[in-house]
Design a protein around this nucleic acid. Sequence first.
DNA 1: TTGATATGCAGGCATTTACCTGCATATTGG
DNA 2: CCAATATGCAGGTAAATGCCTGCATATCAA
Lengths: 106, 106
Amino acid sequence: MDDDKVFKALADPTRRELLDRLYARNGQTLGQLCETMDMKRQSVTQHLGLLEDANLISTVRRGREKLHYINPVPVYEVYERWVRKFEEGRLSLLYDLKQELERKQT
Amino acid sequence: MDDDKVFKALADPTRRELLDRLYARNGQTLGQLCETMDMKRQSVTQHLGLLEDANLISTVRRGREKLHYINPVPVYEVYERWVRKFEEGRLSLLYDLKQELERKQT
DNA sequence: TTGATATGCAGGCATTTACCTGCATATTGG
DNA sequence: CCAATATGCAGGTAAATGCCTGCATATCAA
């Protein structure tokens, strides 16, 4: 997994919404996704391209249509490799800050 | 929490590295962080500013120094509000994709 | 006080990004 | 076949981004 591609893909609100819509209803075509996206089809295509490049979605061609499916694996990997690490130290980090603030005030 | 600010802040590798360094050693000054960052102090300041704006770090002034501390809360909130949602549907989404692929091939 | 140190702030510049328009290609149904 | 439909591809542009330089301000230590 390319951490950077995943984070950059998630950085855009349009792309997060596309993932939301696919989460609500998986396997939609480009046309279906465009109906609700208030921008040109070609722009949506670009966003979907970045999502696919980050491996956040997978696509299947069916005739002249292209179906889009969420690939939840990289999201989970982001959590595993990056978020959880910070979570583990959560309380101790807050404790450090509290200590520092108290030290300063006295 | 501002989802967008958090995601955008996490989108840059330099900022993720800053969080990594603060995770390894919390409460570092700007100067300390600059020593290892291979870019001008002013650029690091900008990155730290975005991290603070996203509430990913907190700062404490101590004399002429500025100490930086990780604030793990928004990272956890990103996980709670966004990552976990996708995690919950993980298996079923993979099942959808498998179904679709099989349907197409037959 | 004064020189050294630590950080703040403003502006410039090259790259990337996100959107667009215009046109090309591929598939389906009649 | 042919018209309608669904998507692909190639630029163009305005705004955002990331890095820089130059200078200002604030604190410490002798």
